[in-house]
Design a protein around this nucleic acid. Sequence first.
RNA 1: GGGGCGGUAGCUCAAUUGGUUAGAGUACCGGACUGUCGAUCCGGUGGUUGCGGGUUCGAGUCCCGUCCGCCUCGCCA
Length: 617
Amino acid sequence: MLIRTHTCGQLRDAHVGQTVRLNGWVNAYRDHGRLIFIDMRDRTGVSQVVFDPETGAGAAVMEAADRLRNEDVIAAEGTVRVRIGGENPKLATGKVEVVCTKLEVLNKTENPPFLPEDPGAGGKLPNEELRLKHRYIDLRRPRMQQILGVRHKVYQSTRRYFDENGFLEIETPILYKSTPEGAREFLVPSRHLPGNWFALPQSPQLFKQILMVAGVDRYMQICRCFRDEDPRADRQAEFTQVDLEMSFVCRERVMEMMEGFVRRLWKDVAGVDVPAIQRMGYREAMERFGIDRPDTRYGLEIADISEVAARSEVGFFKEALAKGADLPRFNSGRGVVKAIRVPGGAERLTRKITDGYNEFVRGFGAGGCAVVKVNAAGELETGIARLLQSVKAGVVTALGLKPGDTVLFVADVYSTCTKALGELRQAVARDMGLVPRPGAEGGPWNFLIVVDFPMFERDKETGRWIAMHHPFTAPRDDQAEAFVNADPSDAVTIESIVSAGYDIVVNGQEIAGGSIRIHAPRVQSKVFQLLGMTPEQAKEKFSFLLEALSYGAPPHGGIAFGLDRLVMNFVGTGNIRDVIAFPKTQIGQDLMTGAPGPVTEEQLREVHARALVPPRA
RNA sequence: GGGGCGGUAGCUCAAUUGGUUAGAGUACCGGACUGUCGAUCCGGUGGUUGCGGGUUCGAGUCCCGUCCGCCUCGCCA
């Protein structure tokens, strides 16, 4: 075999005159009869190889070259020279070409179902189903190779940073114990213990805490996590986290460490200097932006106008405000009226668009979205304008209205109203063209750390308390006493306790979340009690953790970054499948390997399991 | 589990109100061609219109079911 001396993306005019050998795929062929051009591709780039009988290509070489087709795997030997036909500015190697004297066809290809080409202007990729089935071809595309490279850089930068900061990389089990809190789990039957099952970890949470008890002090891992829930464009059942945990730290120290990591990563991978990251409380985020991961690159903040709305003649305002009127102001069940002022919306947001908003907020459980426009004379128009007339001055002042504005109103209980407007705000920002493209295209990266989350929220169906982050999250230092002493039936107090948790948000997307953990058994027991677990149940589920905590657990805390989402940001895609080498579809299938697939009766017997339904064909 | 969009040649798409033999570009096959780089020119092969049923004289088109892909709500401690 003619083993390569250079890669296909390497040749420059400095190589002119050298004899080189290239290995790669036929990216394109242009056959002029007695003159043939082949573009050879490997992951580094493309080089043009010329076959010309007058410059050393014998009859056999010409004949073989004539038969080359896209995606054949070849080796070519020849001399580098400046291109006779002029430079091709589209290629990094475009100044030179290889005049081929020897050609070896390493492997002919079947006619491929599609060619691994990035879509040019107006071009389209073959549909994703086909590309997933033949992932090995799709991954040959320069874009996919680039993404694999960026992901590699993220791994390397991550390991360097945490190594420099004294973290030990430690692997934790993939065959794990089922912890029925949280996401649905993937199960694996045990052969040795009939009737018993492993679960694949939703995260290494408990192991990393136990590593702290074990004196590891600083742990990190780039680990696979599994959650058997329906995917989204940015979610996959099997995904990767940068997981870390630190001992003898307060919340501030962990946030410093993770901020340092973000700064290093963005510098290494994107060449961006990240400024000091702003902090924002959960309550403030929800009030101003209606979401716990606000995108603060644009305004469109949400205003609570309940007070003035109560004096209006709008029936559904009053109806909403009557709900839970006796509850504290931020209680999820209290009725409120909120609005977003959209500067310039009167012109850009057409009736068709705002009708869409009405449907949009209904999707989040709100009754609808009222729309009022401010005309050039400063008068309110359309929708409920007439019913607001009596409180017009109050509305104008509360929202700072100006001519040309559109105002979007939602009235409902606090949780629904906030959620609906938080989602609507993002949709409006897109429609108004307010969302910059991040990163290389020039838009800013907008980082935010959100803190002071509530410890608990109500389960929407059962009304029971559930942990907002997870049941091992500690209350904020100054809240610990109040928490331990709180009466479990005192809902107002329970709801007011905030945790020592923190999320990192970039451009409105959560990329990391963590907390200081509970290291005191009495605090942990209190959490379990609130979650409705008896001491016996808690022991049954988490005895190993409780036991570990009782044998000298240091104060500790940590965080986990969603690595796939980090890579998505760096490469500018909204599709998580783009950044995973072998991703799964919406129903969790791997279209290339055909997983999941049936197993034999014998295999089932060995693990003491039986199928309730036959495998689907 | 709910809602939406889609599935026609290997690929990307078209096909008027339900109406002639389902077309085009590209890929592939054959031929021509000495400077291309989306090579060009000539010719050709290629179809269970995802699958199953129904309505109709007649279905790619309408109806029902189903499978698959994507987006999304729920879900994701």
